[in-house]
Design a protein around this nucleic acid. Structure first.
Lengths: 142, 142
DNA sequence: AACAAGACTTGACTCATTCCAGAAAAGCCC
DNA sequence: GGGCTTTTCTGGAATGAGTCAAGTCTTGTT
């Protein structure tokens, strides 16, 4: 888990100003991968006291634009954020409880980046989401 | 394009009652693949006159539950529906205008259904979304 | 220390989607 | 076809994530 000095260094290396909300949000994303925006807001407030939700939205957008954080949004769930970026991994989402887990790329490097027919699109990313039931939920259905 | 008789047959085969809104919605999804809910509402009203948006939402949910229609919702766009189901195809989404195109499965049958490590999840579907720029938008950026 | 650019706060607002309760229609049995 | 049950449709109001805009405060710099 990155120390607050690490966090600061990460922000500076992305040429982002270092502010308390930004530190807190980036730490929160590192500590709680796949957390949705509301959880992050709660977590940030737990550390800093009152922070406007708008600030958190802004920060998340800035971090995403800077590539420090990745936004994922499986159908039907809220926006979630994670700090693992640039390593081409994918996600498993539980249909029942919405839990998210990481999966490494199944077919080696940038596997699915070549669809059979691209219709003239210039493709730059292949996002893979596996749907299923997490261990807990599949246990409950028996 | 299915005739209204086909549409009726499809509904009955799924044990759904045949109502005018359902016929209209299912036709609209067949005619406009990847249309969002509002476009579908407009289209249905063009054919039937006034129909409550609630009815369209209900019908879409019923059709989705019955497996006659598939709901897709790429990050940041509204819910979209398509009538191609159960053939394991994927989508290309334009980052700029949100246009959606179909792509057949890149690696043959159910390709990505085997992640390297499933974390105990029981996986039933692999959803792949390719992100990029559609021909029109990539032309405009030059 | 002071400046300019960039962040944060506040509060109102948008808009897709959902909830609710009553009215209407469809399917089914006779 | 008529009556009964069940499901669907209507209309309006509510929910809630996310956005906008104007003003104030910070950060990093000169």
């Amino acid at each position: 888990m990155p120390s607050s000095l690490d966090i600061e260094r990460i922000l500076r290396s992305a040429e982002l100003r270092v502010t308390r909300p930004r530190m807190a949000v980036l730490s929160a994303v590192h500590e709680h991968p796949h957390a949705d925006t509301n959880s992050l807001i709660d977590d940030v407030r737990r550390h800093l006291g009152e922070v406007s939700h708008q600030a958190v939205y802004d920060v998340l957008q800035a971090l995403t634009a800077a590539g420090l954080v990745r936004r994922i949004q499986p159908s039907g769930s809220l926006a979630r954020y994670e700090a693992r970026v640039a390593d081409n991994h994918h996600h498993i989402v539980c249909r029942s409880c919405g839990a998210v887990a990481d999966v490494d790329c199944s077919v080696g490097f940038a596997p699915c980046l070549t669809p059979s027919e691209a219709h003239g699109y210039a493709i730059d990313e292949a996002e893979v989401i596996y749907w299923g039931l997490c261990p807990t939920c599949s246990a409950h259905t028996h």
